[in-house]
């Protein structure tokens, strides 16, 4: 009897811990949506900010973030997929492969602010790009590279070995086998990884703080050597650096909500893509 009671108590305790986390997440989302939604309208999204961001919209920050994530993925995707192809299709168990794997794991653990320092030292100063879309995108690309490599490699490995053997036995070269009979079936997983990478790049502040982000710049960039505003940095500025933070609170909530929608939308997109391709290719 008492035995059964302890059993139940412990299990309720475990359940309580889990749902406590769920409730906290739910509350955070609710709070931001509840206060942010009234601010969201067409003008907020498409107008330039005025008076140091105290009025007006967040259009250049949205555009800046889109430029940054586009630049990031253009740079990171080829290298990420290329690395994944090497690791899953070509790599033999040797020191080079081990070093590559160690580098990827290490890279994944580098704090985002250290990426910022690195980007500042190498791209902004040494290559003399200045704080720019280019410097920021390359820095973010270095940061999301491990995500893209790991998910793409998983996707490639999920394609059965028999597809490769089947192709090779018909007299294809190794690359022909990969291109025609492996890559097409791992496409879904690779796209999923790319979306996850973009989502991470979109939400990061620390790496762009030192390499690209502009405090207040109410115009659109003309080239990849221009600075831009970006949503996460804009939120940081509004929330902490603005002389009258409480007055611009609605704008902060609005910006936070837009950022949240962008990032969570991308995660959701990744989940949907994954399940779509899982249904399409079943073997």
């Amino acid at each position: 009897m008492t035995h059964n009671l302890t059993e139940k108590l412990v299990i309720s305790g475990l359940r309580f811990a889990t749902y406590a986390i769920v409730i906290v997440i739910g509350y955070i989302l609710f709070d931001i949506i509840w206060h942010g939604l009234p601010v969201l309208d067409w003008r907020f999204l498409t107008e330039m900010p005025r008076r140091g961001g105290a009025e007006g919209g967040i259009f250049p920050a949205i555009v800046g973030t889109i430029y940054l994530i586009a630049g990031t993925i253009i740079i990171a995707l080829p290298f990420g997929v290329g690395s994944a192809i090497y690791l899953s299709e070509y790599a033999s168990r040797n020191r080079l492969t081990e070093t590559i794997r160690l580098a990827i794991i290490t890279l994944a653990g580098v704090p985002s602010i250290v990426f910022g320092l690195f980007g500042l030292g190498l791209f902004v100063l040494y290559f003399n790009f200045g704080p720019s879309i280019l410097a920021g995108s390359i820095t973010l690309a270095c940061m999301v590279l491990p995500t893209i490599i790991v998910t793409s490699e998983e996707a490639l490995r999920a394609v059965p070995k028999s597809f490769r053997e089947g192709s090779l036995a018909l007299g294809t070269t190794k690359w022909q086998a990969i291109r025609t009979n492996v890559l097409p079936y791992s496409f879904g997983g690779i796209i999923t990884g790319a979306i996850l990478g973009i989502g991470r790049a979109a939400g990061e502040t620390a790496p762009i703080l030192l390499t690209v982000a502009a405090f207040f710049l109410p115009r659109l960039p003309k080239s990849i050597f221009d600075q831009v505003m970006a949503l996460p940095y804009h939120l940081y500025i509004l929330a902490t650096q603005h002389p009258d933070t409480s007055k611009v609170l609605p704008l902060q909530y609005g910006t936070a909500l837009v950022l949240l929608i962008l990032v969570l939308g991308l995660s959701l997109g990744a989940i949907i893509t994954r399940s779509h391709f899982r249904r399409k290719y079943r073997w």
Partner: peptide, 8 residues
Amino acid sequence: SIPSVVLG
């Protein structure tokens, strides 16, 4: 996946 700046 919630950005740290949003949590902050």
